[in-house]
Nucleic acid binder design. Structure first.
Lengths: 127, 127
DNA sequence: GAATTATATGAGCGCTCGCTCATATATTAT
DNA sequence: ATAATATATGAGCGAGCGCTCATATAATTC
């Protein structure tokens, strides 16, 4: 094995050459947590509904065709992440989006999906 | 509190009034799938590295301090989602980002996390 | 040829996640 | 007070995910 060459095997592309810069773990975790909010269809639809106007649990459950419990659990998660604000009025509790990141990411993701995407192929599903 | 009939109870805030617009299920699923890519710290760091330049599995594994197997599995997932392109050169396989959505979302999410919640410029990487 | 390097992949394990179910609490109506 | 409505929450289950381990394939070197 003549390791006199700069490369070991096939390409002079510097496979082990320059150091690779990777996002630090802490930031990666925080980013992942942020994106995790929209990584579930139910939460995506919740955010889409709450982006329109504030809603109580009952409305949300009805709109999403889900049980109150399931909706309440998801809202609790969003609340713990401080992404929604809740206001109690009578026996209703109204929830509203209270974080700009999520709204922005949702809007950008939606725009990307709805528009022509990268390659210019309008029709999808090709495998 | 004038029309005191079918309306349930507490608030005339239109709790059951106007219909709630929710994103359709198919779009919600596609959005969730897109965001799922960045919902894991490992993939976030992979994308951050691949956003810089193309890398082979070996480099990626080294940069992320992970086994080749784990990296290869994740790359397979990204490949199936058509988010990365792979090029075989000799015995190396180089991977590169091949989807604008992911890069954009990554950049925006990172900007939000780093700068609080302003417009979203910033294309800074680690260090 | 055999050995080494680079990557891919199936199986399996532990963990997390989202849901249902049951129950608890709070508010309003009767 | 009792009932009905509205929401919250713990427990638990099934599914999915990310990793490791073992093995397979391909290219390169000896």
């Amino acid at each position: 094995m003549e390791d006199n060459d700069a490369n070991s095997a096939a390409e002079p592309t510097g496979c082990d050459g320059a150091p690779v810069e990777v996002l630090d773990e802490m930031t990666a975790v925080r980013l992942a947590e942020t994106f995790s909010v929209l990584s579930d269809p139910t939460r995506v639809r919740m955010v889409s509904a709450l982006a329109e106007r504030r809603l109580c649990v009952h409305e949300l459950a009805k709109a999403l065709a889900m049980t109150h419990s399931a909706v309440s659990h998801q809202l609790a998660t969003l609340r713990e992440m401080r992404l929604v604000a809740h206001t109690k009025e009578g026996r209703h509790v109204y929830y509203a989006l209270d974080d700009d990141h999520i709204g922005d990411l949702f809007a950008q993701g939606l725009a990307h999906i709805r528009h022509g995407m990268d390659g210019g192929i309008a029709n999808d599903r090709r495998d």
